[in-house]
Design a protein around this nucleic acid. Structure first.
Lengths: 123, 123
DNA sequence: TAGAATATCGTACATTTGTACAACTTGTCA
DNA sequence: TGACAAGTTGTACAAATGTACGATATTCTA
């Protein structure tokens, strides 16, 4: 089984990786277009981030015309799991409850969301 | 009103900052003692992190004997809010629902937790 | 088929981060 | 009161991060 631990993701890399997931397959252009208006970084910068993501093993690419089309090399589930756990550890000592509380108290989630969660958990 | 934006926290800084919060007031020693066994970094390293945290404005200190006693200079609520939002943005595009789902699906939270949340939200 | 677009690649570079040693300072106790 | 133990400070330094320019390569198009 392939059990090589993936190098950690930097915040910017995480952001870019998410966009690739969202797009399923994406060129540098595609990613640039998906960047929120607020976040303006150069094409070349996105390119570097994608390259690094590939080097770290999170992405692979295929050539289409002259462009590289990047796509996930690792299941997002896995990456998310690691990221969430890391985050939880650093900020909450691993306990998810305070995080949930925070989300609830700040109106990030509403009663409907909770109903859905309830169903998920009881399953 | 003081509205200077605090410099971002690095993962290690976040970890140390949390320990200071937990202890309320803490010397370098105190923090070292609270470090989980797994995480072994030198006294001097913790010291540097605390120094940086103070320089960034997250902590202040007071002298007790020859030691520095660090304590929060910013409400943890505020820091947590920023951290959670940043994290959410990077990994989930700001949408908290997938995060909740992840927590629920991975047994991080159970039915009881959800009941508690329900009460919080309905309030 | 030559030039215009558009891409990638190599490289760069200032900061930040993680980690820590060595030297200096200062309460404290015998 | 003088030496010691515990602290702090200055400094270091490699690696990671954020950001991007310029050169080169490749595809399209007129």
């Amino acid at each position: 089984m392939t059990r090589r631990k993936l190098a950690a993701l930097s915040p910017s890399e995480t952001e870019i990786l998410r966009l690739v997931w969202k797009l399923d397959k994406a060129t540098v252009q595609d990613v640039c277009n998906k960047l929120p208006a607020k976040r303006k970084i150069a094409y070349a910068t996105v390119q570097t981030l994608l390259r690094r993501l590939e080097k770290k093993g999170y992405l692979k690419h295929r050539i289409r015309g002259k462009a590289h089309v990047f796509f996930a090399a690792v299941k997002s589930e896995k990456v998310i799991k690691r990221s969430v756990n890391d985050f939880l550890d650093k900020l909450f000592g691993g306990d998810p409850v305070p995080l949930m509380q925070y989300l609830a108290e700040h109106g990030k989630i509403d009663a409907d969301d909770i109903e859905k969660l309830k169903r998920l958990v009881s399953k």
